[in-house]
Design a protein around this nucleic acid. Structure first.
Lengths: 126, 126, 126, 126
DNA sequence: GTGGTCTAGACCACC
DNA sequence: GTGGTCTAGACCACC
């Protein structure tokens, strides 16, 4: 099953986000070689040109670095990944707050809604 | 501007969710007449048949009640709406937790992430 | 609400059946004047010519008798009505048996199905 | 010869009833694949969309289960079919009683009417 | 091949 | 006007 894109937004931007997410989740290890443009293109079901553009952008942001003849490697600066992680986390929080915000919940309902979050997250880490 | 749909999921299901969201947000008042099938179809830029299917599902769930020749009306049972509100809120929390969960945040980062939520939500209600 | 016809069968035949049913049910009293062709046609939502044909057939069967200038009257022979009543009852039984027949019910299920009939019918007559 | 529908009632509801009847009569075997939507539509002389709606309702009731790319299958729970059988039988009885009820039969006539039923049904099963 | 969704356009019953 | 049903024909995902 190839990756599912929202056709209303540029595909190469969605690819960039996806690769960043996978990286901060540990699916691509720091300093390790990323799948080649062609392989990743095939895996996500997109045109290799589109994937090449995504890799180019990621390199421009210094999220990956491509070495001629060797391939592309995840940035090995931990602060860079941490910043990305924080950015993704805050984006998720922002969307959550905006979806919840105009639901008309009263204070008690908000408490009940938020209470399990910490627990679920800690449990996930056990 | 017609409503934006995710083409990867059935439109009629997205319409159902959208109408529920609008209702719990108070955009459609309980017991009040909903825009007609044709009008809502025009407003969202879909075929009237697709909208009719969405309304049909909503009636099957007792979220609205439709009367031939008269129109469609939001269910006037406040518990029904409250249940829907809770369901939407929990779905948003679930997605938030799942997006955050495998980001590899440590306890301190989680605290920093969650801290502002309550404040933002209360601020929205002022 | 005008009468509902099955368009797959001649309307005048359905009218004849309907008038006979109403009569044996006592909706038209023996010896009493039937509504005029035009009135009955309007009531059932059919063309007066169609209704006239139905009346003609009913008279040919001696179920009603039309007296010039006075109108149409239900046959006053009680045996005639009794025969009609029996015919309708047996037709209903025949349809019931045929619908039940190939349902694959075992003897016990048939017993349970038939048991309440007598009771319901007697109860209806109290 | 395509199936005969009563034009006064929705075709898709009549299709549903017909498929249930055929199933309890053993024309479609439990767990077996039903004719495809298109084939059944052709056989009954209706539009594939109408047939799809009937199948969709049948699946919602768990009378069949449909799998994309594979086909639709009769529910393999014998209790489900037995319940349907009972429902059809009781519906037939109900219509019979209602047609008979206001015919004005006396007790003796009712006895004569009911007497042959058991015999006819048992005869059908020999 | 299979079922699932969507559009387009028609006609109906009810108000 | 309103919702409900039906046909015709298309395209999709899954097998």
């Amino acid at each position: 099953m190839s990756f599912k894109f929202d056709p209303n937004r540029p595909i190469y931007l969605q690819i960039i986000e996806e690769i960043k997410k996978r990286t901060v989740r540990g699916q691509y290890l720091v300093g390790t070689q990323l799948p080649s443009v062609r392989e990743m293109a095939r895996a996500m079901g997109v045109n290799p040109n589109t994937m090449a553009r995504a890799y180019m952008e990621l390199e421009r942001e210094s999220f990956i670095s491509s070495r001629r003849g060797q391939g592309s490697f995840i940035c090995d600066d931990p602060r860079r990944l941490d910043a990305e992680r924080r950015r993704l986390a805050e984006a998720a929080r922002g969307q959550f707050v905006s979806e919840i915000g105009d639901l008309g919940l009263d204070a008690k309902q908000i408490e009940e809604l938020l209470a399990p979050i910490r627990g679920e997250l800690n449990h996930d880490r056990d």
